[in-house]
Each structure stands twice: as C-alpha cells, then as structure tokens.
Design a protein around this nucleic acid. Structure first.
Length: 209
DNA sequence: TTTCCGATCCTCT
DNA sequence: GAGGATCGGAAAT
C-alpha cells in the first residue's frame, strides 16, 4: 500500500456513518480502526467487540427512562459524540448513537492492537499483547483514552474512527456485566468478530460453543 | 453529606 | 470462579 493510499485510509469516517440505527451501527463498527493521538504518540486498534445500549427502553442503559444527569447528558446529543465514564479505576468508551434526544450509545468492549505497540505495552505495564486491549477498561488504558475525551466527536482528531476491514463473520449474544437489570440482561445486543482472540469474555463464548 | 453500587480488572484459589 | 480493590456519580437522608 502506498503512502498516499495509507493517508486516505486513515481519514476519520464521515458523520453520516454514525447516523444509522443503533444495532446496525454497533455491528458496522466491527472492523473499524479506533485511533487516539496523544503527545506521547499515536495508538490504534481494530474494533472487534461492541455492545448496544438502547436508551429509555433499556434497563441496562445509563439513560434508562430518559434519566438525564450531568454524566448522561452527552447521550442526548447527536450520533458520533464521545461518551466516557469511569468504572472503579477504569475509563469506558462509548459512541453516542441515535438522533438528538434519543440517548442511545454503543460501548466499545475490545479492539485488536494495530499501531503504537510500544506505547500500548508501556501503558499496560508490560503485560502480554493479548491483555492490552481485550476489555473496555484495558483498551482505554492502552490507547490513552481518558475522561477528558468526554464530549468530543469521533469524526476528528485526536480521537477518531477510520475505515478498517470487513469482518468475515459477526456473532451476537447477551451483553456482559449487567446481571441486575431484569430481562435486559438477556437481550442479544453484544456483537463481536467470530474467533478474534482479542474479544473479551472469550472463555464464556467458547464454553457455550 | 452519607450511602450505595456498579456497562471492570486483577489476584488469588 | 470468587472476592477485593477503590472511587465517582447519583440518589437518599
């Protein structure tokens, strides 16, 4: 691939990409390249696992029942905004989806390391490669994503999503870590690339065949 | 201001 | 597979 083609390839996706139904977008994000540029350098990875959170109707969503707080406010913005929040010590990254005032979001659960390996290994404190980005908290640490990214848009630097590859086979199943949300725990709104070693909770997936 | 509780991760068994 | 770490946001008091 020539440098020119490479540069074109790395352009952020247009806003229109994000303006599709949430479930469809969650699936479409698989294979896309997630890029974060920092003063220390650039790190990126291909998205291999996502989860859709369907707003007011979804008991597992922070915006369930249209709950509106300082934290969830960005979910009511137009598609393509960045929603970050902290879970214990970890930062979790979401893509805001749906039209304005429809507070959907898509959690990025795992990526496959692509660019900036040295930086990611350093940030992940020398852990082995597979452990760099195979979980939502882990990938944020590896890519250098912080709460400062809250409210940005994925269509421009320093945090953006670019075209990647088209996955061979996409799987779907129940979401992870939402045991206490009634029937919502069973909804098959988690999407992942079949067989990709960086998908989180791989063990569960394998055990269920 | 106090309490409660995670859209997680890591370190043990 | 289980439990602790550890802390900010949100609701209760």
């Amino acid at each position: 691939m020539s440098g020119t083609e490479w540069g074109k390839f790395r352009e952020p996706l247009p806003l229109t990409f994000f303006e599709q139904p949430t479930q469809q977008l969650a699936k479409a994000l698989l294979g896309c390249l997630l890029v974060k540029e920092t003063p220390e350098g650039t790190a990126s990875g291909y998205i291999v696992e996502t989860e859709a959170y369907m707003g007011a109707e979804d008991r597992a969503a922070h915006s369930f029942g249209n709950r509106r707080t300082k934290r969830t406010e960005i979910m009511y913005a137009s598609a393509g905004h960045v929603y970050t929040y902290t879970m214990h010590r970890h930062v979790l990254l979401n893509v805001v989806s749906g039209p304005e005032n429809v507070p959907h979001a898509i959690l990025i659960r795992a990526v496959e390391p692509f660019e900036g390996s040295a930086l990611m290994e350093l940030r992940r404190m020398g852990r082995k490669r597979r452990e760099w980005t195979n979980g939502p908290g882990k990938l944020s640490e590896a890519l250098g994503i912080t709460r400062e990214d809250y409210g940005r848009t994925f269509t421009e630097r320093p945090l953006y999503i670019a075209e990647g590859f088209v996955p061979d086979q996409v799987m779907r199943g129940p979401r992870v870590g939402i045991e206490n949300t009634g029937d919502a725990r069973f909804y098959p709104w988690r999407f992942w690339i079949k067989g990709n070693p960086y998908v989180s909770a791989m063990r569960k997936t394998v055990q269920k065949g």
